[in-house]
Design a protein around this nucleic acid. Sequence first.
DNA 1: GAACCTATTGGACACGTGCGCAATAAGGGA
DNA 2: TCCCTTATTGCGCACGTGTCCAATAGGTTC
Lengths: 206, 206
Amino acid sequence: MTRLSPTARREEIVAAALRVASVKGLANTTVRDVAAEMGTSSGLIHHYFASMDDVLAAAFDEAAGADLAATTAEMSACAGPIDRLSTFFSSYIRTEDYRGFQMWLDAWAEASRRPALAATSLRLNVAWQRLIATTVADGVAEGVLVCDDPDATAWRVLSLLDGLSLQVAAHPGLLDQSTVADWAMASLETEIGLPRRSLRRPPSKR
Amino acid sequence: MTRLSPTARREEIVAAALRVASVKGLANTTVRDVAAEMGTSSGLIHHYFASMDDVLAAAFDEAAGADLAATTAEMSACAGPIDRLSTFFSSYIRTEDYRGFQMWLDAWAEASRRPALAATSLRLNVAWQRLIATTVADGVAEGVLVCDDPDATAWRVLSLLDGLSLQVAAHPGLLDQSTVADWAMASLETEIGLPRRSLRRPPSKR
DNA sequence: GAACCTATTGGACACGTGCGCAATAAGGGA
DNA sequence: TCCCTTATTGCGCACGTGTCCAATAGGTTC
């Protein structure tokens, strides 16, 4: 293969690992898979990453981090906290298709066995939680919504979404994504003292 | 090893697989692990189970099914729906320690790769949901609580518990079990029109 | 006691795993 | 042009994986 600069090659490895992982799942992605995807040798991966754990952590960081960044950007383009929360949900269900969510499932399950992956998933989970928590806290400060404990509320709505999405990914046909979003929105609306369906977006927007 | 009856041997295999899986996790439990745990040969396992997927599914069924049965029994010993729901939570956090929950994480993540495990986790998840749904519906019928859609409420409270417990298992130190139970109870109390802390149990009971 | 069924053995098979390492080649600086 | 750093190769090592199967042994039935 053509000789690349260290940074460029590193990025290509992560991109290739991500492509493989999105099809086979994080847990089933091997060094040889990534090498084959790039069309290079397997030894090259170990020249840039100390262990496979680090490769998977970097790939997961790339994927989930991009989703987080995209959602954050969309939300900050909105006017008020309520609109931002509304955008959060529509962004969440768009990015987190059942395929992307399988990566989260693998990351959580593998966390006990792969330290780097555990650190990454922890960091990203906390980042998602803080995104919601600060938005809710802003709404309370502006007086447009009511919440005793924005931190706890953020963990609840995030975990509810995770728990429901998990069923979608693990048990196809049981629940569907629009139901998940609807139920999670209903829960948050109740928690922060908003009338029913006030977070709902007209689906015509897409 | 001493020659056993087919049913006895089958049960011993499942029990051994469960013992190994509760330490190493479902995903990391191998045929040789189970054989070593029993002190027999690995070929014996395949004499009773067509594939490793079936062994793991049976082991998971055994563990999670026992938890479900225990909780069901405890709940039906209670007087009214509210007391049953209260018992549900205290039973849930007692049985679902972080170790047992790792099995759920593995089951969900492996579901896309192991058909038998997927079928088992689907069946058990639905059973848990129905347990809550019927209890809530009973409460509505008796007029002691209010709920528009017990089915949706059951999925929400179960998924909230799963989503929060997942964080406890995957990211030690981030959240703790008592917080999880408290937050999930708060959510359900709001949903079914109960005053705050009415589902809470005095911890002196244990 | 003999005959038969089957639980159990122990290892072979084919494959997949992460990781390491000597050899090669490509490019930049002197 | 030579040299020296290092990206890249290709393979080997040690191990682990599920599955299969001929051989053995224990128990039941006639």
